[in-house]
């Protein structure tokens, strides 16, 4: 029955997100446009691995935008449509419902990676070669986990405060830059790099890139993987702690509804 809650929320969320024009833009148009933009930039810069920077960069930017505008904004949409209070007061666990929403959105958002890939292959005949396919899949799974956990922290903050959406919109671009979605983090100033190193997507992206090129140093790969999981686990613990308090906090602060 818990699975039914998770699964039906996932499906509901995918349906709801997909009919929203803004989401469709982020999901479908954004990766195409970003792929073209990045391709032109990298072509003149002489970078050879279009897959690692153009496709991955554009795809991940699309994925992240979807998360910023959807996973997060969805709590507010539910609040304004009056359904947040309804789902909150059901016997189903609220964190589980939120998790279902986030997983649904994230899975749907993965489409942006695929769209970016198809754009690059069709438009620019970017060769499709993955150095270490299995490790790439592992890195992808890690990336999804890491984004799901980050979204759940954000969603929790949003349930507690209506202002979070504003902060979310301000966070979109900085994360793209800090985590090295479209360039290696190593070109950032050292002080900023320290910040990047505390964010789990940084590692996720490095892992994806490593596996695209082909992993030569397996130890390094799994080491980074371990760090990514450790940071993600830390976020998960944080979000677990937040959710423990959420049930009481929102009822004291009266933030379930707009009124």
């Amino acid at each position: 029955m818990k699975l039914a809650v998770l699964y039906s929320t996932m499906v509901l969320q995918m349906k709801k997100s997909f009919v929203r024009p803004m989401f469709r833009f982020c999901l479908l148009a954004n990766p195409i446009l970003n792929t073209i933009l990045l391709y032109e930039m990298f072509r003149t810069a002489g970078e050879e691995s279009f897959l690692a920077y153009v496709v991955l960069g554009a795809g991940l930017m699309g994925l992240w935008s979807c998360i910023c505008f959807s996973s997060a904004g969805d709590i507010n949409r539910e609040r304004y449509s009056g359904t947040l209070a309804l789902i909150f007061a059901t016997p189903a666990s609220f964190p589980l419902i939120i998790l279902g929403k986030i997983i649904g959105n994230t899975l749907l958002s993965l489409l942006s990676l695929l769209i970016s890939l198809v754009t690059a292959v069709l438009l620019f005949r970017v060769p499709l070669s993955i150095g270490s396919p299995l490790l790439f899949l592992a890195a992808l799974a890690g990336t999804v986990t890491c984004f799901v956990v980050i979204s759940s922290v954000i969603a929790c903050l949003l349930t507690l405060s209506r202002k979070t959406e504003l902060y979310m919109n301000c966070l979109e671009i900085p994360i793209i830059l800090l985590c090295g979605f479209v360039f290696p983090v190593s070109i950032l100033p050292p002080a900023v790099q320290a910040l990047s190193r505390a964010l789990s997507p940084t590692y996720a992206i490095e892992l994806l890139r490593m596996s695209l090129y082909g992993v030569t140093d397996l130890r390094l790969f799994w080491e980074k993987f371990g760090i990514m999981l450790a940071i993600t686990a830390l976020y998960a613990i944080l979000s677990g702690l937040l959710y423990r308090r959420i049930d009481r906090r929102v009822r004291i602060a009266a933030t379930l509804e707009v009124a």
């Binding site: 029955m1 929320t9 349906k15 449509s81 059901t90």
Partner: peptide, 18 residues
């Protein structure tokens, strides 16, 4: 949920009511 049918709305909430 306005983007769902009445039946789907009820299905969803019956899941949430376990």
């Amino acid at each position: 949920y306005r983007r769902l049918s009445a039946r789907d709305n009820l299905h969803y909430f019956s899941n949430l009511y376990l």
